[in-house]
Every structure is written in C-alpha cells, then in structure tokens.
Amino acid sequence: MKFSVYRYNPDTDNEPYMQAFEVETRQGMMLRDALMAIQEQDESFTFRHSCGEGVCGSDGVNVNGSNKLACITPLSELKETVEVRPFPGRPVVRDLVVDMSQFYAQYKKVDPWLIRKEPMPEQEILQSPEERDKLDGLYECIMCGCCSTSCPSFWWNPDKFLGPQALLSACRFLADSRDQASEERLNSLEGPYKMFRCHTIMNCVEACPKGLNPTKAIGHIKAIMLKDAI
C-alpha cells in the first residue's frame, strides 16, 4: 500500500515535504501498524503512539484530510495513496508530532475537576444510576485532540475559544450530580469567546474517535445557561 507522509525536521529541513513510502499490508492492519512499519524503514520518522487500542489518545493524525486515531483506523477503510499529515492548525514540532500545549491549556481553563463545597461523607457520595447515566458520552474523552484541531473556530481563536474538548469536559462536570460549582462554571464560560465561538460546524462530532458529541454537550451548556438566566 502506498503512503505519502508529511516530513519536517527543524534541525535539518528548511521546509516541510511529503515523502512516499510503500508498506506491505496484512489482514486487520491498522494505520498505526503501517506508521510503525514506515518507522522501521526510516528510523528518523517520528510520531507519537502508545497503547495501540484507542484509549491513551497519543496517535491522533490527519489522514486523507480527516483527523483520526491511527491505532483504531483500519487500513482497509483508507483510500490509496494514504496521505498522513500532522493535526491541522497546531505548530509542528517534527514530522507528525505537533505542539499540543495550547490544547492542554484550554482544558485546564475549565477547572476540570470535581468541586464539592459540603464536607465529604464518610462513605461514597450517593448518586443514582440515572444521575450517573448523564455522565455517559462525556467522561470517556481521551484528550486525543482530534476534535479541537478539526474545529475552524479553534483554528481562528485557539487562545480564546476553549474548543470542543475543553467544553465537553466542562459539560462533564456540569452534568455531575456531585459537583457543586455549576454557577461558577457557567459564569466562567460567559463572554463572546470561550464557548460562544462555537458555530455548530460539527467537525468535532465527525472527528471524535470515541463517538462522543461535543456539539451536543455545548448545546447542553447553552441550554442550562439560558434556563438559569431567565
């Protein structure tokens, strides 16, 4: 199978370029396996990867124009020649490795931790199965960055718009019956930028390798805000 792979090493290259590789495929092979095979051919080829089963979120890349997690993308689903590039809109560190620090910084801005004001009980804080069900579709995020780096609003205002990933996380805590800081969370999302740059383009939904729906989460936050404001 033929691959065209984005290459750039700031130590040696003035300009990025695309390099052609050919990889022998086998039944059930994933894109990550192919990238590892390419790395065997050329050990200077660099990309992040770890668990190989779609839970660590390391190996998000742009394949044939869409953001995917390499380890759970079967080669059989890809059109030849497979074009592999780094995530769009992020500074390239080297080859497929991008600088994700702004993405992580936005995550930290939503205070992504459970806030409880009452003293803790001796045992668990009780939560009904129905209340717990509200976290499904929110807590499973693996922070791979496929969504935020496919979001045009995030490309335009990466420093001010929190992006789908961080907003999904914000929603995860707003939806948690144990959390007691909804008011503060809602207040902090106000303003034209942090959340309201979302124009429901929905690239995030298409990109999410875990099948999550950040657009829906953002809509949910807006609905709570409105209910709270009226």
Binding site: L186, N187, L189, E190, G191, P192, Y193, K194, M195, F196, K222, M225, L226, D228, A229
Partner: peptide
C-alpha cells in the same frame, strides 16, 4: 464577567 454580557445574550438574540 457577568452572565448578562455579550456571550449568552448575543447567542440568544
């Protein structure tokens, strides 16, 4: 910034 500011209101309007 208060909730009355331009995010929610603009979106709602």
């Amino acid at each position: 910034m208060s909730r009355q500011a331009s995010g929610l209101r603009a979106w709602f309007l």
